[in-house]
Every structure is written in structure tokens, then in C-alpha cells.
Design a binder for these strands. Structure first.
Length: 647
DNA sequence: GCCGTTTTCGGCCCGACTGTTTTCAGTCG
């Protein structure tokens, strides 16, 4: 989904190259693709811009270096045309004649393509014939019955557009992973219990563990003779706000809160979340697509609706390379399928009892769902000895380093937090309360310098008790220390040296937002280089669906941390496991691993229940290709003690 | 616009669904 805000070419805040950052280029290329589409450009050209944007965003090296060294055109997906535009903008700060494209397309059109059923072609037709360039105008045109007589439109289209405008207004966009999974598992469970259902499995972005989920996809396996009764049963389930449509093999639904209230057998974690949602009297809903297939077809359909679009494209290409064709019903020789399509073509499918056999027929190892994003997994799975990592699991976690108590803005005591950690089977808990300068809304939140020793002695006392009792558990006395606008850390050097570990975090985002990426990166690196600095907390400050992170070159920061680690320091980076943050972004995890920067999965808990959030962090780590050995909090308490500043 | 055991043009992933048409274009995932 394209954001409408900031729909213009960026101006540079710098007076020397690089005038623009990679992130800015990624955004511009994506916008250009949309504008081209709306102005009726060739679809393949549009895709070229999308591909180039994607290529840039997954590029790990510094863009300016690549351009300076003349290596830009070696990047797959960037050719002469787009490469020239990128080079011009970065080196000279200008955008060629791109401004004319921006001028040509009214920004209102971008909003209009968000209406379900209206794509770029139809939006352009409305603009060309009726001059419609805003949602308001479109609504009026519907009311005046001006749409239905247009070629290619009709009465039904007009009504659909009119209803769609309302839908767009209510449309919440994507749903956070925790909430989406809650709905998804609940529906999955209810369908599984229906008679005649062999299996119901969540697919789509929920199964891939994206940090936000668009709509839910559920694939249901059932013998053909049972399909009709199963469909009727599903339509009658509680918690369905609306049935958008259904046929012989597919149901499209909108789920509402009641779906959660009657859920059974979910863990304590999910029950609490369900309660919270109900308490807030939230009107959150989520769309769900249910596909009913036969047991033989199930693995193909599951794989098809699990892979990201990009992963699936690559998979189909792998099939083509072997004289095969892959669709949601099977994998079959092109020669036998001929001109038939869909289920008919799949009559000749190779039999696969599960997903792994589909991959095997394409000479690949099975790829965990989280990794199906075309981020290198196809290549890694295609080698004779798999290069896919053995992904971390939640049970590997032995503690966490960033948690709050009543000393700052937490709501439980040291003892209560420790007890909760012990009941999770952890060997340690890192306390990292806020530092002195932090105040939110004029209220001071952090621990003042003179109170730090109090917390220290309380922790020493508790640790002594466990040690005496022979309990393998300890608290680490750390700090979530503010990184100030000039890159200095809060507290004096003396105070910071008291702590076993320092989680450096940015909280006062204002000045960081008003600076460019290059300056922010410089300041943050300055903070990281401080000898007392241990862990970078919620690295970009993003809050999912609320605010973007600060402009920052994460690749450069991770590279620098890697260098410092090579010099014998311990500089780690956090995956903040709060489902509303999930920052570090999963796309950067693999890079951090390659640069030898350890990752911590930190729940950032503010109460005893918050510790459970670690589970979401593990999902992100899996998505980011991380193994047990990449994660700092899979180490034992004794190992961490020897790594930290513990005296 | 990008790409290439088919090096400079002709491809570029697959299919369902919808509504408009009367064979298909556009949208969606």
C-alpha cells in the first residue's frame, strides 16, 4: 500500500553529494512506478521501476560508494535508464524530467486506486473522461449516475465504487502480527473441528510472520464429497461479520471480535491479548480468505498461498526451467498440460504429499515459511547441501536484557520481574530502566544518578540469595540509557560504568527527525563507540502503523558495530520484541549476522506479562534467517556474566 | 525499462473472478 503523504520528489538538505539516501531513492522509484501506471505507461516498464526499488532496498552496500565506483549497473534490475536517474539524483541532487511526471498526475488519483476494484487503468479512464481527480468528485459522480454509462463501466461497477469509498474510509489497512495471528489461529482452530475437514492451516503473510498482516489466508483439506457441507459449516461459524462471497472452493469473509471470544485451547499469552482487545471495545476486523481443496491438492495450494508474490514468481520460474509448470493445484510437465490451465492442467501433476516434496521436485530443500520472501532463500535452498540456516526457536531463549521495573515506568518490582523470568525457565533477566533525562509529557521517568546505587545494591542482594540457594538465576543491572541528540549518552561516565550493560536508545525523536540520514547516522555511531555502550535498543524508533523510524543508514551502523566487535568489543543490536515495534526490521537481521553483530531479542517488558513478547521477537529473528548462535540471549547466564561488565 | 547458452529485439509468472461484453480487459492476490 502506497502512503499518500509526502507525495513529491524530495529536496536535498545537503550541499554536497550524496544528495539523497538509498531510502529516499527506494521511495521515489516506488512512487514513480505508481505514477507511470496512472499515466498509462507500459506495464513492464512499471515493473522495471518496482524491481529497481526492490533491488535498492535489499542492497546492503552504501549506495554512494557503489555509484562512485561505477558499479551501479552491475546491480540486477538496474539498467541504463533507472541507473542514470539514480546517479543524477545522488551526485547532482536533480531528478531529470521526473518532475513533469509528478506534475502530470494529480495526487488524488493515488488515493483513488486504493478503492477496491479500481486499478490504475480504470482510474485513468475516469480521469480522462470525467476529469475525476479526487475521492469527493468520484463520490459525486456516482451519486449523479455519471459512471454507469461510461464504456467498460456499468451499474454494478458504479455501486461497487460507491460502496468502496465507504470501505476505504473504514479500512484499517494491515493488522499487527499479534492481533492477526490471534484471529487467524482462532479461525484455523474452528475450521479444524468441522466434520469432514482433514486439515486447516493458516497460510499467507500470517504464516510468513510478517510484522503486519493484510488479510488471513486459510487452506482447508477435505474430500471432494464433503466440500459443500464444510463450506456451509464455515459460513455458520460465530464471529463472522460479513460474508463477502463464496463459491465451490473459496469463501471470502470479514471476521469480528466474537471470533476471539469463543476461541479455545489457545495459550495464556493469546487469552490475555484477546481480553485486551475486548476490553478496549475495539472494532478491529480482519478479512479472511478460505480455500477448500482435496487432500492431494492441499500441499500445492498451501505453498501457493504461503509464498510471497516474489517467492512464488521465482518458484514458477524454477519449474519452467525444468520443463514444468507450477500453479496452486499442482506441478506438472508443460508438455502434458498443453493449452489447458488451472485444475485441468494439474490433472497431470507429480504427486507431492507435502510441501517439501514440491521443493524436492524442483531440486530444492524445503524452505521455512518465514523465509519465503525471495531474499536469497531460493539460491540457498538450491545447493546440494542446504545453505538454509537452522532457525532459532522460542525454547532457545535463556533470558533477556531490556526490561523495566517500578524504578522507572514499569509496573512490577525487581523481585516480581525475576520471578516471572524464572517461571519461564530463564537463567537471567537484564534490568534496563530508563535513564535520568527521559521525561514524557513533562513527567520525569528515568532513574536519577543518585538512585542508581540503590538499585544496584538491591540487585546484588537478590543475586546473593539465589546464589546461596544454588538457584541458577541472576539479574543483570543494566540501563536503558538515552542517546542524546548530539550522540552522547545520558549519565556521567562513572554512573554508566556501574552498569553491567548499557542499552542505548533514542527517545526524544524530534531532533533526529529534523536531520538527514547522514548526520543521524554519524551521531548514532558516536554513541555506539562509547566504551560503555553494549546494545542498541529499538534501533529506528518505529512504531508499527503509527510512525516511521528516524532516517538512518542501518547498514552503515551495523557495519560499524561489526568493526568494533572485531576489535574485541561487545556491541549488539536488539530486536525489540514488542509487537508494536518489532524493530530491528527482519530484512536487516541477515546482514547483522554477516557483519558479526550479535542480536538480542528483548521484550522491553514493562510488567511481568510483557516478558512473553519474546515469542514475537523470535518470529522476527526466524524471518531474518537467524540461528541459535546468532542470538546473545541463547547463551547461559554464566556465559553472559563473563561477557558483561559484572563485578 | 531490464535482460540475454536465442547479445540488440522480443520476451517479461499464473490463474480466478468480476462485470462488461458476446470474447475480453481489468483487478486482485
Amino acid at each position: 500500500m502506497v502512503k499518500v503523504g509526502g507525495w513529491s520528489l524530495p529536496n536535498s538538505r545537503r550541499d554536497e553529494p550524496p544528495y539523497f539516501s538509498k531510502t529516499q531513492l527506494v521511495d521515489v522509484l516506488e512512487q514513480v512506478a505508481v505514477l507511470l501506471e496512472l499515466s498509462g505507461a507500459n506495464g513492464f516498464k512499471v515493473r522495471a521501476y518496482q524491481n529497481a526499488s526492490r533491488a535498492l532496498s535489499s542492497m546492503e552496500e552504501d549506495l554512494f560508494s557503489i555509484i562512485s565506483e561505477g558499479r551501479l549497473l552491475q546491480v540486477k534490475g538496474i539498467g541504463k535508464g533507472i541507473g542514470g536517474l539514480i546517479t543524477e539524483s545522488v551526485l547532482h541532487g536533480t531528478w531529470g524530467d521526473m518532475q513533469s511526471l509528478y506534475d502530470k498526475v494529480p495526487t488524488g488519483l493515488i488515493e483513488i486506486v486504493g478503492i477496491p476494484g479500481l486499478g490504475p487503468k480504470k482510474v485513468k479512464a475516469l480521469y480522462d473522461s470525467l476529469g475525476i481527480e479526487s475521492i469527493e468528485q468520484l463520490k459525486t459522480a456516482c451519486e449523479l449516475d455519471h459512471i454507469s454509462s461510461l464504456p467498460g463501466f456499468g451499474k454494478k461497477s458504479q455501486k461497487k465504487i460507491f460502496d468502496g469509498i465507504d470501505l476505504l474510509r473504514r479500512y484499517q489497512g494491515r493488522t499487527r502480527m499479534d492481533v492477526g495471528l490471534l484471529f487467524g489461529r482462532s479461525l484455523e482452530e474452528k475450521i479444524s473441528l468441522i466434520e469432514g475437514v482433514e486439515k486447516a492451516q493458516l497460510a499467507g503473510s500470517a504464516r510468513r510472520r510478517r510484522e503486519t498482516i493484510g488479510d488471513l489466508d486459510i487452506v482447508v483439506s477435505s474430500l471432494a464429497i464433503n466440500h459443500q457441507t464444510v463450506i456451509q459449516e464455515i459460513l455458520g461459524l460465530p464471529g463472522i461479520a460479513e460474508v463477502k462471497g463464496y463459491g465451490d472452493s473459496k469463501i471470502s469473509l470479514i471476521l469480528e471480535q466474537e471470533m476471539l471470544s469463543s476461541s479455545i485451547g489457545t495459550g495464556a499469552l493469546d487469552e490475555r491479548l484477546a481480553e485486551t482487545l475486548m476490553d478496549r471495545n475495539s472494532d478491529a476486523t480482519i478479512d479472511a480468505q478460505v480455500r477448500i481443496v482435496t487432500p492431494e491438492t492441499f500441499p500445492f495450494t498451501l505453498a501457493y498461498f504461503t509464498g510471497s508474490k516474489e517467492h512464488n514468481i521465482r518458484m514458477r520460474q524454477e519449474a519452467i526451467n525444468r520443463g514444468l509448470r507450477l500453479n496452486e493445484f499442482g506441478l506438472f510437465p508443460e508438455s502434458l498440460a498443453g493449452s489447458s490451465i488451472g485444475m485441468e492442467a494439474a490433472k497431470h501433476t507429480l504427486l507431492c504429499s507435502d510441501e517439501s516434496e514440491i521443493y524436492k521436485n524442483l531440486d530444492m530443500h524445503w524452505v521455512p515459511p518465514e523465509m519465503r520472501e525471495d531474499m536469497g532463500e531460493i539460491e540457498a535452498a538450491s545447493t546440494s547441501k542446504s545453505l538454509l540456516p537452522e532457525l532459532i526457536i522460542p525454547e532457545d531463549i535463556k533470558g533477556a536484557f531490556h526490561n523495566h521495573t517500578i524504578y522507572s515506568d514499569g509496573s512490577n518490582t525487581l523481585e516480581e520481574m525475576a520471578q516471572a523470568a524464572q517461571s519461564l525457565g530463564w537463567q537471567y533477566l537484564g534490568i534496563a530502566d530508563h535513564s535520568e533525562t527521559l521525561n514524557i509529557g513533562g513527567r520525569s521517568i528515568g532513574i536519577s544518578s543518585n538512585l542508581v546505587p540503590n538499585q544496584r545494591s538491591e540487585i546484588i542482594k537478590l543475586n546473593q540469595i539465589w546464589s546461596d540457594e544454588g538457584v541458577d538465576f541472576r539479574l543483570f543491572h543494566g540501563s536503558e540509557c538515552d542517546i542524546l541528540a548530539d550522540g552522547k549518552l545520558d549519565y556521567s561516565d562513572d554512573i554508566r560504568n556501574i552498569f553491567s550493560h548499557v542499552v542505548g536508545s533514542i527517545h526524544a525523536l524530534g531532533s533526529w527527525r529534523n536531520r538527514d540520514e547522514i548526520e543521524n547516522t554519524e551521531m548514532l555511531i558516536r554513541a555506539i563507540e562509547d566504551p560503555t555502550f553494549t546494545i542498541l535498543g529499538h534501533p529506528t524508533g518505529r512504531i508499527l502503523q503509527v510512525r516511521e523510524g528516524i532516517p538512518i543508514d542501518m547498514h552503515a551502523i551495523i557495519r560499524r558495530m561489526g568493526e568494533l566487535n572485531m576489535e574485541g568489543n561487545l556491541k549488539a543490536i536488539e530486536i525489540n520484541a514488542s509487537p508494536y515495534r518489532l524493530d530491528l526490521d527482519w530484512r536487516l537481521c541477515k546482514f547483522a549476522k554477516e557483519q558479526k553483530v550479535p542480536i538480542c531479542i528483548n521484550p522491553d517488558a514493562h510488567d511481568v506479562n510483557g516478558l512473553n513478547d519474546v515469542w514475537y521477537g523470535v518470529q522476527i529473528a526466524r524471518k531474518g534467517w537467524l540461528e541459535r548462535s546468532d542470538i546473545l540471549n541463547t547463551k547461559t547466564g554464566a556465559e553472559i556474566e563473563s561477557l558483561f561488565n559484572v563485578r
